[in-house]
Design a binder for these strands. Structure first.
Lengths: 200, 200
DNA sequence: ACCTGAACACCGTTCAAGT
DNA sequence: ACCTGAACACCGTTCAAGT
């Protein structure tokens, strides 16, 4: 036993990521266990601890990867349309990602940092870049408003859109289909944008 | 050992509820363990299983109790003011409860039902009654709109308000103080209501 | 240097055995 | 009938020991 070196550390890390993502995608965050990951990649638990500090570390990095995917999806939205329409399309794209990748997406919010743990800077940046995207569109929408007003609007709208997604997709609310959730997201975004401009 | 009967089943159940709520309030949902509860009430783990089916059962009932408290808080909001203002005050009351009872409140959303588990009817009713409260105010706000429009507006706004609360209070977003979150909640509610009426 | 596998502490749950 | 406490399966984490 030991000393196989069939894979580099980098390769093992990648295998762990992929195995973990498959497990979460298929059976949810609660099903993510070291032993399951080790089994899936054909190594033992000790090997997972060679490439990750602990489960919390792996989880945080998984969340980061999902945030990257979200950012990537949001960047697909065409900028060749008025900012108001872009905001609606971004909201729809976020919902679409959340619905298509529900388990991995909801893991971002199911997992909480332990006491006296802090959000890593590299993770915070990924969160911020989403909000900056939205903020920039509010600047286009109302160039004369202050930077603080753009920031506040982006925060309120995006948190709101997220709220519709999380409550609508997590059961508990009797929302029948994805089209119904989409209507809610559009209603929220549309109404907010109209009202925000009116109240400026 | 055994056969103490110092407390009735009903009393033990109540002791478990209170011990569990103290643990969650102080150290968060992740700190809620049967052994800890048993220790706190001066019984053994087996006794907890006398009054609750399992942890999932206890957790679900705890969530129900918190929903009751939320409903109760929302009912404190004065009806002696225009519906628009009531909606703002309800949003603020929800945020206030979430902030004051963060660990118990966020437990409602951290906990997910296991696969092939269903939301109990008695729990669903508690969720629904919050939305019905909001719905009724949209009916007052726009009596000529359809019942479906009232329902959609209530769903979009309340999910949105919840989204602002959960993302703002859970860290990750760099929101400094409670006053800043309150501004966001008010901005979302105010803008949504204005825009919704406009777009009717 | 890389990897194993057994050990440890801790978790939810069960249930034969005591009173 | 009520309650115990030991047992079970499972979890994350560590680390001496192999190659």
């Amino acid at each position: 036993m030991a000393r196989r070196s069939q894979h580099s550390q980098e390769q093992i890390k990648d295998m762990v990521f992929k195995a973990a993502e498959t497990i979460v995608a298929e059976d949810g965050f609660a099903a993510l266990k070291v032993r399951e990951i080790a089994m899936e990649i054909g190594y033992t638990v000790g090997s997972v601890y060679m490439v990750f500090e602990n489960m919390a570390d792996l989880i945080m990095q998984l969340k980061g990867r999902t945030l990257d995917e979200i950012n990537q999806q949001l960047l697909q939205v065409s900028t060749q349309q008025p900012p108001e329409q872009q905001l609606i399309e971004l909201s729809k794209a976020y919902l679409f990602f959340a619905q298509k990748n529900f388990n991995r997406w909801s893991m971002i919010f199911e997992h909480r940092l332990g006491t006296n743990e802090v959000v890593p800077a590299w993770y915070q940046e990924k969160v911020d870049s989403i909000f900056q995207h939205i903020e920039a569109l509010f600047k286009q929408l109302a160039p004369l408003a202050t930077a603080q007003q753009h920031k506040n609007a982006a925060h309120a709208l995006w948190c709101g859109v997220h709220g519709v997604c999380i409550l609508s997709l997590s059961g508990s609310l009797d929302v029948v289909g994805i089209k119904e959730v989409e209507s809610s997201v559009i209603l929220l975004a549309q109404s907010f944008i109209t009202g925000w401009q009116q109240n400026l």
